[in-house]
Amino acid sequence: MERNKKEYAVRIIKILEEDYGHVKCALNFSSPFELLTAAILSAQCTDERVNKVTENLFKRYKSVEDYANADILELENYIKSAGFFRNKGKNIIKSAQMVINKYNGDVPQTMEELLELSGVARKTANVVLVSAFGKSEGIAVDTHVIRIANLLELTEYDDPVKIEKDLMKIVPKKYWINFSFMIQTLGRRICKARNPVHVFCSLNKICPLLQK
């Protein structure tokens, strides 16, 4: 491990940019509220599964008003395969109602306001801010980022909020938007939780796990 974690973090980023610098949000959406909905559904669910769910969901519900007035049982039926569908269904409807009642139907564009919505934690808020509005108020920390940030010894925590704080200290702000995308893509394609493909990992020469 290099002594200067900021330099180490930038080195990681520069290497990843060669392979994953072009990647964007893996969730499919055509409006900020669709992204918010997909991000809520993505909790403890793969993006691939969420995209399958939203393919039909977004055909049925076209506007924020559609979600706000949705029949909970019907909505649950659409999102069932995403897991935890009862809580997610309630959160989607409540968030839609709040967006209408408090923000005139527009998804808010600040971390503070997004965190007031049902089912929205910092990871979800970061995803919406970055991919819907091009804003970076933090670093989205999902299961891939949790696992790989620990493997790379960028943090020693398992808690997403503490990990985000660690990463925000060492990752320059200009990279906050792309950092999560690149780490997540690395996690999906190469550095998998099960059977990681070390030989094809662009970080294999500096990864602490492989240097031991």
Rank of each mutant, 00 (worst) to 15 (best):
N204Y: 07
Y67R: 02
F84E: 02
V10D: 05
H198F: 15
R60T: 13
M168D: 06
F200W: 03
E55Q: 12
S118Q: 11
N150L: 10
V199K: 15
S63W: 06
P196V: 13
C201N: 13
Y61N: 03
F33D: 12
Y157P: 05
R188E: 08
N91W: 00
N4F: 15
S30L: 05
H198M: 11
N178A: 02
T124D: 07
P208I: 14
N178F: 08
K123Q: 08
F200L: 12
L186S: 08
C25K: 08
C45N: 03
A82M: 00
G89H: 03
A121C: 13
A68K: 09
G83Q: 04
E7W: 00
W176G: 06
A132C: 06
L154F: 13
M98D: 11
V107D: 03
V50P: 09
C45I: 05
K5H: 12
S42R: 06
H22T: 07
R147W: 07
A39F: 12
P108N: 12
L209R: 15
K59G: 07
I92F: 07
A43W: 10
N195G: 03
S42H: 04
F33L: 07
V53A: 14
L152S: 09
Q109T: 13
Q109L: 06
N56C: 07
R189N: 14
N56W: 03
K52I: 11
E112F: 02
V145E: 00
V127S: 00
I100N: 10
K169Y: 04
G119N: 03
N204G: 01
L41C: 02
I79T: 02
L36R: 10
A38Q: 10
F133Y: 15
I15R: 13
P32E: 03
R3K: 15
Y67P: 07
A132P: 01
D142L: 05
P108S: 11
E48V: 12
E2A: 12
G187Y: 10
Y8H: 14
V128F: 10
K192Q: 06
L16W: 05
C207P: 13
P32Q: 04
E116Q: 15
R86C: 01
F84K: 04
N126E: 02
E17Q: 12
A68C: 08
V99W: 10
R3D: 14
N51R: 04
K162T: 04
R3E: 15
S42V: 06
E34M: 03
T124V: 15
T185H: 12
A82K: 01
A9G: 06
E156L: 09
L35R: 04
L152R: 07
L117I: 01
E137F: 00
K90R: 11
Q97L: 11
K5A: 09
K6N: 11
E113T: 00
A9S: 13
A70W: 06
S63K: 04
E74N: 00
